[in-house]
Amino acid sequence: MAGRVTDGTNAAIGDVAVASPVGGGVWRTAPAEVLAPLAARRPPTSDPGELAAAARRIRRRAVEMVAPSGLGYLGQAMSSAEVFAVLYRAVVRHGTDYVVLSPGHYVISHYAAAADAGLLDEAALATYGTDGSWLESISTERTPLLAATCGALGQGLSVAAGLALAATLVGADRRTYAFCSDGELEEGQVWEAAMFAAHRQLTGLTAVFDCNGSQVDGPVASVTTVEPIADKWRAFGWDVHEVDGHDVGALVAAFTAARRTGGPSVVLARTTMSRGLPPSLRSGDTHFITLGPGDADAARRELAAP
């Protein structure tokens, strides 16, 4: 057992049928049938037009995933489409960097973006949320291509800090991206992780928060006061990049700057859950949208290529 410490990483995604770039337990076995072949991998791009188109495809895929049952986390896909497009097509080095999905409800965006990057089989998306599917509606240990996840909110940033710490200890060129949501800021553990990452100067850690201002009971601001979010992260010692979360160019610039800091960095993506939705769906509860019979067609029209 003695010997050099590695960071436990298996072969790159696509080279072998592994669910995740990390080890860890019997559940992370191979859903080979949902992974795309290596030849399907799309090259990274920073072109704003390409990334905007990728975000549009993510939204369309999300509508198709939700349409059969009418149930799913469509609003989450709408608010995070650009963030995931930029992460999966421009920022994350697949097979090298770690992706932690803290709010498991956003896994719909992960699936759609992973398909866009050519990591996940496009046809498998049709099984989203169906009984027995690999593509569960809230992410689990079975979810392909994630280093870690949680459905119980507020836990992901700590796990990401552990992954980033492990990479730092062995000097690995491996970044950790933690996708989080603004509602999670209400969980105390997030701030435990914030203090720790700054204290340890975890340069390899970048968190991105989807600040869509929405939680189950309504607007976040109506439930409690999480603002000023940027000031809080600055006060905790993080490098803060606050951007329009639907502006792909601004997101690319923010993630690029975040890589160059000498400590943990956070991208605060200001978004709205109604982005890309037809007018009929923009009001009401966008946190958990029920897609009625006519709604899917209206959404498809709204998201048709310009």
């Binding site: 590695t6 080890g23 860890g24 870690a148 553990q189």
Partner: peptide, 26 residues
């Protein structure tokens, strides 16, 4: 010292960091 980490009084966070380190092979 390279094999010791004190995360401070934060037991919930402690378990998360442990999970991250273990997932990375520790």
């Amino acid at each position: 010292p390279d094999q010791f980490v004190n995360v401070g009084m934060s037991e919930q966070h402690l378990m998360g960091v442990a999970g991250g380190l273990a997932r990375a092979g520790r």
